[in-house]
């Protein structure tokens, strides 16, 4: 398919044209790092990021989300219909959404809230110019993106080469874009490599002493799961109003790294020790999910490594398993 080209000087106008119909979310600078935020103009968008500190999955699976309001037994879960464009989402994070789709859009068990946000949001992906020190997307095969995006931008000199991924994406193409035969190929090379052979043998290491040893450094702060673009565990919490008749039911993101996560009524905790919780995360990502859905639950974005205050590096732990 022949692509399009958009001159960088026209990028501002493109964003303006999107604004008429969509809310725009894009990477913005926050202190020393980058997060996704709502933007009103192209000037607010940051381009010098490798990836954002916090993942764009938060825009689809918010950390706190109202499931419904209630008043006695009357339930209201009507939500405003907002159409959004996410600009600047990295290929690995699009892969993360594809993985979340397998879980949240699974037939017969579909998550209405997630679906609605997915349907109402267009993804304009932005190819990476270089890999960060903790990126290992190359190992996970998530550096390349064949589907899942509406438009794919690739920086080339003074322009962006734009690839169209869907009919919705096609509709965003306006007179600012010119047809081109040019292709934009970026070869990414990650210094960090996950030994996939080890990953495929992980089950043999289930009782390995390494888990206990490595988990001794873990603070159980949950930073790894909260910043992970494919972690979606939650608690369901009711918040009544003071009149007690009305209120709301929320879901709040939680983490398997917390002791209270596997606690049942009566107080028994199934994964009481830190090593069990530590192992559970890694095994869920690389073993259990693969068994359930035939895909890894990890895109190699490296956020769990970057954000770990204890410097725990899942990649080097797995690579050094013997």
């Amino acid at each position: 398919m022949s692509g399009y080209i958009l001159k960088k000087e026209d990028f501002g106008k493109f964003i303006e044209s999107l604004k008429e119909e969509y809310e725009i979310f894009a990477p913005v600078k926050k202190k020393t790092y980058f997060v996704f935020g709502k933007v009103d103009s192209a000037e607010e968008i940051a381009f010098e990021f490798i990836n954002t500190e916090y993942s764009p999955t938060n825009l689809f699976f918010p950390k706190k989300e109202v499931l419904f309001d209630y008043n006695n037994t009357k339930i209201n879960n009507k939500k405003e219909d907002i159409t959004r464009v996410i600009f600047g989402i990295r290929p690995c994070d699009v892969h993360a959404l594809i993985i979340m789709d397998t879980l949240f859009l699974e037939a017969n068990f579909e998550d209405t809230y997630y679906r609605k946000k997915r349907e109402n949001t267009l993804l304009i992906s932005l190819k990476c110019n270089s890999a960060g020190e903790n990126c290992f997307c190359e190992s996970m095969g998530t550096d390349k993106l064949e589907r899942g995006y509406d438009l794919m931008f690739c920086e080339q000199g003074g322009s962006y080469v734009v690839d169209i991924g869907s009919q919705r994406g096609q509709k965003l193409i306006n007179e600012l874009f010119k047809s081109t035969d040019e292709e934009c190929i970026k070869e990414l090379h990650c210094n960090k490599k996950l030994d996939m052979q080890k990953v495929n043998q992980l089950e043999q290491f289930a009782e390995h002493e390494g888990w206990k040893k490595e988990s001794e450094a873990c603070l159980s702060c949950a930073a790894c799961t909260i910043t992970c673009p494919t972690c979606g565990c939650f608690d369901v919490v009711d918040v009544p109003n003071l009149n007690m008749a009305a209120g709301k039911r929320l879901r709040v993101n939680t983490s398997c790294q917390l002791k209270n996560f596997s606690e049942v009524a009566g107080g028994h905790v199934f994964r009481e020790t830190r090593d069990k919780r530590f192992k559970h995360r890694i095994y869920h990502k690389l073993v259990y999910f693969k068994k359930q859905f035939d895909t890894f639950m990890c895109v190699g974005c490296g956020r769990c490594i970057t954000n770990c205050p204890a410097g725990i590096d899942m990649v080097s732990i797995i690579n050094s398993l013997k």
């Binding site: 879980l103 699974e106 998550d111 979606g232 939650f234 608690d235 199934f270 559970h280 259990y288 999910f289």
Partner: peptide, 13 residues
């Protein structure tokens, strides 16, 4: 949740 989403009842796979 009862839907295989919230993660609390997970044992291995």
């Amino acid at each position: 949740c009862g839907l295989g989403k919230c993660g609390h009842c997970m044992i291995n796979d």
